[in-house]
Amino acid sequence: MRGFDETLLDEADETVRVRFVVNGRKVACEVAPRETLVDCLRDKLELTGTHAGCEMGACGACLVQIDGRAVHSCLMFAVQADGARIDTIEGLTESGAIADLQAEFHRRNALQCGFCTPGMLVNACELLSQVARPSREQIRDALSGNYCRCTGYEAIVDAIDAVAKARSAGGAR
């Protein structure tokens, strides 16, 4: 890699080219260094399933997976993700990986306006990949950074709990 080139300092307003693998597809786009990943995903790549709420790490609406781990896309600039694998709610749903979570959220009314839902699902997906049978306490703990202004959380915890039980009963995953 090259060392630091001072002319870079005068190029703060210029865009740079970044490449990622988003939902399994290779994409390249031009971003300003100050553009957050959530803005890039929503505005440039038109993946509006990832939501922008507080834009400071507090609400969890913007969660995506970077290289397989849940991350706030508002707490990252798109340039930092250059070269990374990004999976958004669109990719997770299309692959069928969280079909059971989606169905259970639906069945139990674990969403109303749906603003928080993508973030809830990304978080639930990671929790269940790490802990096969989380307690309700562990589920609540995992969701501590996700705000929901509609449901009161109980139905969300119920849905994740039910999927955890169903998955481990099925023996799969």
């Binding site: 005068d10 703060a12 260094p33 957050t36 340039v79």
Partner: peptide, 10 residues
């Protein structure tokens, strides 16, 4: 809630 312009170096 948007940062001022800066240059980025990895």
């Amino acid at each position: 809630v948007k940062a001022s312009a800066f240059s980025y170096f990895r």
